[in-house]
Computed example of a mutant assay.
Amino acid sequence: MCIISLAWQAHPNWKLIAIGNRDEMHGRPAQPLDRWTDHDHMLAGRDVQAGGTWLGVSEQGRFAVVTNVSSQDSPDRNRASRGDLLRDFLSGDGRCSKLDAVSFSDFNPFNLITIENDVAIVHSNRPDSISRSLAPGIHGLSNGPLEKPWEKAKHLDAALERWLESHEADPTSLLDVLTNQSPYPLKGEAQTDLPTQFEPQSSGIFIKNPVYGTRCSTIVAIDHQGRGSITERRYAASAEVNGESRLSFSWPA
């Protein structure tokens, strides 16, 4: 995912609402949201190239989502895939299943949010490796460092907050919020400090581009009784919708 807004323990009806877009090369193959046959408690899309995922949930009470952190340097293809962190954490199996034993420096720059046993933690490895708990509230991440959230992440947080205040019952209406292509131009000196990247800091919440753009939008909703749903809407390189999946799951109450 390249932008995510997450409401954690922030509403009397909802334990978790997470909304976000995955931005990626359109030519990189991916399998749509589904239960994984090798771990049927796990619900996520799958990156065919590296075998991991970008966002998912487990009926064992785990949630994870990752964003890359943009920089002027190209990703080091010799490093492990960031999707491995999520696959192993969500499945509970593999060398990355216990994140406190993982060397984050082995991976290209990332921000990662995990939830397990009703504890939410945000991890990052740039500029330094950190893991710190997330208090109840609304939290947003895009491709910037934790301490400097991009403007579009702030706007997505605000849109999620308005939805929560409306007490609307169906979270899939938030898919419309994720189609916002309005740019967020930088001002002053920040304009001269843009890294070379496919997702510039001034880009919209939804990126329409035939080479690199928004591949899917995802909504995760879990109420306080442990009833959950995950919805994925997929997009072609033209930005037209080309598929949608919605799955229900149970979360430990």
Rank of each mutant, 00 (worst) to 15 (best):
P32C: 05
W14P: 00
E59M: 13
S5M: 08
A80Q: 10
F89M: 04
L112H: 11
N13Y: 10
L43C: 06
L43N: 03
R79I: 07
R62V: 02
R62T: 01
S103G: 12
K98A: 11
V57I: 10
D100K: 11
G61W: 04
A7V: 14
L43V: 11
G51L: 05
K15A: 09
A7P: 15
W54H: 07
V48M: 11
S103Y: 08
H39D: 08
W8H: 06
E24P: 02
R82Q: 14
E24V: 04
W14I: 00
D106C: 11
D76Y: 04
P12I: 01
T53C: 15
G51F: 05
L55V: 14
P75Q: 01
G83V: 05
D38R: 02
P32E: 09
N111I: 11
A101V: 00
L86Q: 04
L6Y: 05
F110H: 07
S71M: 06
R77V: 12
A7M: 09
R79C: 09
A44P: 01
V65S: 15
K98E: 13
D100E: 12
R62Q: 02
L16A: 03
E24S: 00
W36F: 03
M42H: 11
V57Y: 09
D47R: 05
N108Q: 06
G20Q: 13
L43I: 15
L55H: 04
D73L: 14
P75G: 04
Q72H: 12
N111M: 11
D73A: 15
G83W: 12
D93Y: 07
N108R: 06
A18T: 08
W54M: 06
V57W: 07
H26P: 03
K98P: 06
H26C: 02
L16I: 12
V57A: 07
L99R: 05
L112G: 11
L55A: 11
D38F: 10
D84N: 11
L55M: 15
N108W: 03
G61R: 06
F63I: 05
V57D: 09
Q72M: 13
S71Y: 00
G52R: 04
S103R: 13
W36K: 00
R46Y: 01
F110C: 10
K15M: 12
D23F: 05
P109Q: 02
C96P: 02
G83I: 03
F63Q: 01
L55Y: 01
I19T: 04
G45C: 07
P32R: 15
G83T: 06
L90A: 13
P75R: 03
W14R: 00
A101W: 04
S105V: 15
A10H: 09
G52P: 05
P109M: 04
D76S: 10
G45H: 09
G27L: 13
S81L: 06
V65P: 04
C96N: 15
L33V: 01
S91H: 03
M42E: 08
D76W: 05
G27K: 10
H11K: 02
G92R: 02
L85K: 03
G20R: 10
S5T: 07
L33I: 00
S97I: 05
K98S: 09
A80W: 13
A80Y: 15
W36Y: 03
V65Y: 04
F107G: 06
S71R: 10
H11I: 01
N13I: 00
P75S: 04
N21M: 07
I19L: 11
G20D: 11
V57M: 07
R46L: 10
D47K: 04
H11M: 05
F104D: 12
L90G: 10
V57N: 09
A80R: 12
G45S: 08
M25A: 12
T67V: 15
